[in-house]
Design a protein around this nucleic acid. Structure first.
Lengths: 340, 340
DNA sequence: TTGAAAGCGCTAACAA
DNA sequence: TTGTTAGCGCTTTCAA
């Protein structure tokens, strides 16, 4: 049983040619009922499973799309991936998923591997918005869709969340509560989300004529540790902020840990809004206000765009979707005159 | 630039035969320096990337392993996958990942797809421990490793966490605190973790001569909603439990939500230990005691076992590893005489 | 050190 | 309705 049966074994057993077998396994019709039955039986008997390798080689398509995410451990991405996978399966596509750990080098490797394997399309949240590695894909004529982070040098279909508006509204809310010293824990400025969320923050301050204080703008890297450190920094300032806006989920977690360790009282001494929903949001007291993103939809739309490009590639224009995040106000940013 | 260059294009440009090109791209040596250089230049100029499809077809191996998990949205699995991927990459293997949503039907589909694509091995946390679909893999001679859940009908290498001991120690701890009415929120009894965690619970009760009260054993499905519902049930009992042991992370979250909604005071009116670490554990007050598992190691060991079987398959015996979970005691299960 | 050629398992054009 | 056959792009013997 160790040697895999091929289409030829089936043909022999059913006493037909391999062409006829091929017709049956591809449901192409034009085969007599009785013949088909004989072939089906042979397939069953042998436990034949057709080689996708050989098939893809001939057809020049693999029905596979590659997904590249920067950090599979960040719960945001599995949710996006779930959205992609569901739609993909509906349309008969399979997915292969790789995580780059935010490394441009790993990302380029993965791109090459995906090309080697002949993926029909790629959905990517890049770790390197300025990278040239996307050209590799374009040269091969492989459709690409960018999710959550733009690709700068090339015209690529993109699905984004409106980061500027999301952080603008969060900060605006804090301002309207009476806060004047609002800090932001930033993401990497060479990523769309990192950059744009800072932009929204600044926009809100400017619009309400609040000064931009550089000591309140702390750089992070979207990882938990940096949120923790940033919060310590803010705490050690002579003039502490009365509110913190954190640019992503993991840094929010880190920041909240720091708050606890420092006994810097959430919702009393310091208000807080985080970008991205986190599990803990509704568990802590006071409950956490967040900017929430539609992960599943993000994935679904990304696949939709890719699908269109894979199947009707004739000069579609570049398309860009901007989904709106939702501000969920809870008790972590209540009005509190005492400390303002 | 749309047509992908093949080995033949390279050969032509470098004025050699395709055999020589093949030698170069595979680093087989036996090629004159100057020739090699010419070939390398040609490769660069054309942007040639070799087709893994054609290569695999010839070599009858894809350097790919398939990973099947029941629920990619459960943070436990991305962590295991990360462990697998890291080791796999070190050894030059690539991974393709699929999530079954706990559906045996989807799982069987995925198994077939993996076979079609010629994966060299499979690491699986099955949604169907009694399934026959594993036979498909065995018939093809594809090595398999089971993670976290056993495969019943076949001899399969397995990496497990000692569920019995984990829940035994958790419940023992509660007993030693003085609790006499300890409830358990179970996982599906047709899965190893679900079954064994109940086993450990019962074992502890028996050992300390506590009666087993069926009303305190509530069935769940490892999903958040069932944890919520189970907790409501327990609350509505005439004689409520004074402690709850929850069989997995998602149900723990659900249960804690219910506790809050019911205003059933954690750590005061009811002690709590959950199986599996959760983000929120150290954020809530009182902090949550948990049974913690070594996810990354689980993944690493699974790959190690698979690797050995893929490369030295000559009659290795079936191997089973049992990793020990760690009981992390925090304040959610403190002694509290008042309510006992 | 190099090349010619067979063949991996399949699809699809063409012929019968 | 069925069969013959030419490749898809590569690796690998065997021969030169």
């Amino acid at each position: 049983m160790d040697n895999k049966p091929t289409i030829e074994d089936v043909a022999k057993l059913a006493n037909v040619s391999i062409a006829t077998v091929s017709r049956v396994i591809n449901n192409q019709g034009g085969v007599r009922k009785a013949t088909e039955e004989r072939i089906l039986n042979a397939i069953n008997e042998l436990g034949y499973i057709r080689s996708a390798l050989a098939r893809s080689m001939k057809k020049k398509e693999t029905n596979t799309i590659g997904i590249i995410v920067p950090d599979i451990k960040n719960p945001f991405f599995p949710l996006v991936v779930a959205g992609i996978e569901q739609k993909a399966r509906e349309k008969g596509y399979y997915t292969i998923l790789s995580s780059t750990n935010e490394s441009p080098i790993v990302e380029e490797d993965i791109v090459k591997i995906f090309i080697e394997r002949g993926v029909d399309g790629v959905i990517i949240t890049t770790a390197n918005e300025n990278g040239d590695h996307i050209k590799l894909l374009q040269d091969q004529g492989i459709p690409i869709v960018a999710v959550d982070r733009v690709i700068k040098k090339f015209d690529i279909d993109t699905v984004l969340v409106d980061n500027v508006s999301g952080s603008y509204h969060a900060v605006q809310h804090l301002i309207l509560q009476g806060h004047k010293r609002i800090a932001i824990i930033c993401g990497p400025q060479n990523t769309t989300p990192g950059y744009e969320r800072l932009l929204g923050y600044k926009k809100a301050l400017e619009e309400y004529n609040l000064p931009i204080d550089e000591t309140l703008i702390v750089q992070g890297d979207f990882m938990e540790g940096s949120g923790y450190k940033a919060t310590q920094e803010l705490y050690s300032l002579d003039k502490r902020p009365t509110a913190i806006f954190s640019s992503n989920n993991l840094m929010t977690i880190g920041s909240l840990k720091a708050l606890m360790d420092l006994e810097w009282k959430l919702g009393e001494e310091v208000s807080f809004i985080g970008f991205d929903d986190v599990d803990i949001a509704t568990f802590i007291k006071p409950r956490l206000s967040v900017v929430s993103r539609p992960m599943n939809t993000l994935g679904e739309m990304a696949f939709q765009l890719l699908y269109e490009r894979m199947n009707f590639k004739e000069n579609l224009p570049k398309r860009e979707y901007l989904l709106s995040p939702v501000l969920k106000i809870r008790e972590s940013c209540q009005l509190n005159n005492y400390y303002l």
